[in-house]
Design a protein around this nucleic acid. Structure first.
Lengths: 196, 196, 196, 196
DNA sequence: TATGAATGAGCCTTCATTCAT
DNA sequence: TATGAATGAAGGCTCATTCAT
């Protein structure tokens, strides 16, 4: 079955991309790890570039689904932020234990898109899905009278996202002293600034 | 003079690293661009890795000096934020016109350090210098009664930095619709939340 | 068929190793001489080291078969020694005419094994096959009453081998005046000392 | 003083040649180990080839002096053979403990001369000195009625030398089971065959 | 669909050597 | 005498890719 081999290759490649940098993973490694033959891989993907492209697409699709399925809907923002902290802690911990680093791959995936402009919509979809979910929660809380109504939900959501993103970057570059505490402080300050 | 050739090579390499990704620049390219011979480069740097290391160091030193010399001291925070927006716009514009992208290199430099833990202090110094400057401005404004005194300057500074960082990341990954406007919104919201 | 290319490469390499010293033969030379491409050679051998290893194995296997097939069985020792002299003369002559030198390669092969201890059994097999053949002849002659029975065949065989070996070494280092005469003298003296 | 630097370089080079194979030692290594500068070495030796040449000469001169000074004169052959065994054991032991291998270097030195025929007389001198010493001892013993007079001392000496040489070769190629015992057996058999 | 042998450009690195100072 | 910057050929090796089977 074509489908099987193909998606298996993508999966294996993504795994390797998580362990090393995308640039440092050769097709040979993917081939060896996939257990298939050179010809088989080239049968499914005309070139390495194409394989990577499909990996990027697959990656963002997974991320998007994950966000869409995140049990955030109708949560008070307070809880959402706690959820974010938890996720962050998880990723950091995982990065320490395993050899891979999801966040690093995530950044690489974000960057990759620049070279293939037709792919831009894909991470954008993820980003917007994320932002929209946040906006939804914020608006809910505004309705419930928990958050100030005169601060645009859009900007608040963006602030949460960018701050978390920047914090992640600083974290994996080992520039922060106590990443988890600092993330908590950041999100708290944001929350307090928009809470009634 | 050794100094000349060596620093020239670093300079040329950094330039190339700005145009393509650090990983994609071969020593041959550096050599060709430097106008020197293969042997000459290897005379100054025992390996490509070492050359990159010195480039990373040089990069962060430049960045740190730039921050330290930034005419931010004693500025009201309002102006500092305007200054940040200006800088951001500049970088974005430059990235569009030239082939290089300072921000992408900046991220790569941040990441590189993970593989060479002894280098971590170097970007950390830059980061702290930046944060300290911001904290200074915020405390000044607090003294002057422009900013709320009950919000810790430290966290506010970190919020500005992470939000700007995250915004940069989102910008170069083409995920935002109107980056400059959105940065303005973000910084405004932050400012308003801490202003009296 | 894999076999063809692979063994062809080994053959070509062994030829070159005979002409120059193993160390002085570059993979490029092997590649050029084999008529294949760089990639093809690396497809069959993961590294130069591995190629050399397989050459060493192939060399000793050939040598061993040659010894095992040598028409020495049941010959009187006298004739065997004459046979040895002939072989020696042949090798010396060949070395003078062609560019290669079997004996030099032989020594190199003997030495190589030190760096790859798992290969030691291979030349050892050759050596023992040779010694056993000699021992067989000596014992035969002892039975026939041609050679003294109180001198251990084992040591006599070893004496013949080591003396021939040492003589070979001195010959190719041009230290002897009349190698063939001297070899005859040596073997004669050994023979006489154990003959009745 | 030119003499000092020059002979120091040779000494250092010979040391390295003992540790690695002559081919594998680069001038850079010699330069680094000598503590001198590139230019300095090239001031003394026009090329690597010339340096090696002088090392070869120096090596054989040392060896020759050593033989000439060996306290063998007037010794009964019996003792000389015991002395040889001792020396052999020493070299083997040293090779096991240190990283270097005198015997391997010795062979390389013997071979080297083939490429530079004008050097042939140098190891030849060593070889002849050794042989002559042995001949002297044998003749002494013949006079004293310990050794048979009808066996030419020349051939006996050569037999001892070649057997020892061959034994050495077999020893360092790990082909023998009990090198020291076997050397003793060999020399004993030779001795007995010429003793009265 | 799948195999794996073959290709050749290009990568990082080492080396002997030259030469201005 | 001595320094060390510079040269460029060559070495071992990797890689994406092609293609006959």
């Amino acid at each position: 079955m074509e489908k099987d081999s193909k998606s298996q290759i993508i999966e294996v490649a993504l795994e390797l991309f998580g362990e090393h940098s995308m640039n440092d993973v050769s097709l040979n490694q993917v081939i060896k790890a996939s257990g298939l033959s050179k010809g088989a891989v080239y049968h499914h993907f005309p070139s390495k570039k194409e394989l990577i492209k499909e990996c990027v697409i697959s990656f963002w699709e997974k991320m998007t689904t994950e966000v869409i399925n995140a049990p955030i809907e109708n949560m008070p923002l307070k809880n959402v932020l706690a959820f974010l902290q938890l996720k962050s802690a998880e990723i950091i911990e995982e990065g320490k234990q395993k050899n891979d680093n999801i966040f690093e791959l995530y950044i690489a995936m974000l960057f990759y898109v620049r070279k293939e402009p037709e792919l831009i919509p894909i991470p954008k979809k993820y980003f917007n899905a994320f932002k929209d979910k946040l906006i939804g929660c914020i608006k809910n809380d505004q309705e419930r009278g928990v958050l100030k109504k005169d601060i645009p939900a859009e900007t608040s959501a963006l602030l949460i996202l960018t701050a978390a993103e920047g914090h992640g970057l600083y974290t994996i570059s080992c520039v922060l002293n106590n990443p988890q505490q600092e993330l908590e402080d950041l999100l708290n300050q944001i929350y307090n600034s928009i809470a009634i």
